[in-house]
Design a binder for these strands. Structure first.
Lengths: 243, 243
DNA sequence: ACTTGACCTTTCCCTAGGGGCAAGGTTGCA
DNA sequence: TGCAACCTTGCCCCTAGGGAAAGGTCAAGT
């Protein structure tokens, strides 16, 4: 009959672990020898291997305890469930590993992949990093606040930018960032943008989030804050549309 | 700027989790609005996605905190290490899944596979389940107490049983279990076994564990306890060998 | 016979990563 | 104006053990 330390080394756990299993009642206490030491037999070793197998599979100790007194039927069904559980855990870990590698490559984004791809298109089309960053922030906030409608809104925007002429308009908007606020090209730009909006959406409102939502305004404020020229463009567009 | 609840839903964590990350200093507190609510921006969402990716990979929160102030060099190396870690975790989980399935099939044993195979041979050779169970217990104890020498001892035993005549001797031992202790066949059996032992190992000691180890005696005691006939066989063998 | 080191015993506190509740303040919508 | 759904901090609870304290025991060497 072996001691707790021998059993622990043999099975590959700590003595502490074995004592915890005794305390929690999922591994029955063996008889003690004359000096009060626990003495284990072969049956205990077999039991412990089973318990460890379940514990390593992530089964809570309390559940392992319950399983000890389950019928064979229940036990088999539980094993099946645990097996499935393990399969999804492995799949999740692999997904995490994939994301970890994206993080290593610097590509990790909290956005749907199609949005991330779109942002890369922007860079290739000649938009400045400043613009691309602004767009990323915008979409993150929109997806966070309106998960249901964000994707439609995004598709509309992506469609707009697929059109060469309209894209040029946005490129001009991007480049206007560093103009003086009183540059005559700004009024010209605002006029062209207002016309394009009306051509696309008619006299109705352009698609928006809630009328109540403060997000679009907030985004626009953030945008405007970074350049007097952009602020001027915004003001002029509203004037053209509102009139 | 979004609230903690919106950020939590968007990233897929609980608000509690976010607060814990703030408390542990791995996710910096954002500014508060007029009523004291935390208000998050797009950069925070990006940060949180990174933190979650690492946390889901099993990186301790304290390490994630340290990584925030690491150089790019260190960061990349850490990611590599975490990636390897994840790979072994996935491999371990698959091994656990394998053992789980053996458990489901009832084949789980805390013994090397060759020993498990040997035990199955025993059953096919006509040994009773009682004998096979006893052998399993014996080997479990031997492997637990003497991991280094057990395998040699086992090979010696397996070799012995591969010999048809010797195997028959053990089969007779097995069947003697239910004889009366004074059955004349018992002395005959003991004499034949003693002779076989001397033929195999000469006048020297048969291979054993430590002279100090109580295991062989303990096993033998357990064996003897289950049948007066077996106890008699043991006594007679000792007499024949000791003389 | 004595010491030494490696065991064993129990009890207690500590950890990570949150969950859940309480008691209170805020916001949005009808 | 009221109600539901937020938010705030603070507190205790959980799992699966780790580690240390304080003491008893065993085997080996001297």
């Amino acid at each position: 009959m072996i001691t707790i330390g021998q059993l622990a080394r043999y099975i590959g756990v700590s003595t502490k672990t074995i004592r915890v299993y005794h305390d929690k009642g999922l591994f029955s206490e063996p008889d003690r020898d004359a000096s009060g030491y626990r003495r284990y037999g072969a049956k205990d070793a077999i039991d412990l291997v089973k318990i460890r197998t379940l514990a390593e599979a992530g089964v809570p100790l309390s559940r392992i305890k319950d399983l000890r007194s389950a019928t064979d039927q229940e036990f088999q069904q539980a094993l099946h469930e645990i097996d499935n559980n393990l399969t999804t855990r492995i799949r999740d870990l692999r997904a995490t590993q994939g994301r970890l590698r994206e993080l290593a490559a610097g590509h990790l984004a909290p956005l749907p992949t199609e949005v991330a791809a779109h942002l890369q298109h922007l860079a290739r089309w000649g938009f400045t990093p400043r613009w691309v960053d602004l767009q990323r922030d915008l979409w993150i906030l929109v997806f966070a606040t309106h998960p249901d409608r964000a994707i439609n809104l995004f598709h509309d925007q992506a469609e707009t930018l697929a059109d060469l002429a309209l894209r040029q308009l946005f490129l001009d908007y991007d480049r206007a960032h560093d103009l003086n606020a009183d540059d005559p090209r700004i009024d010209n730009l605002a006029r062209r943008i207002a016309k394009a909006i009306q051509d696309r959406y008619g006299p109705d409102e352009p698609p928006e989030l809630d009328a109540a939502s403060a997000i679009p305004a907030l985004i626009q404020d953030t945008v405007n804050a970074s350049s007097p020229a952009w602020q001027r463009v915004d003001t002029l567009i509203r004037a053209h549309l509102g009139a």
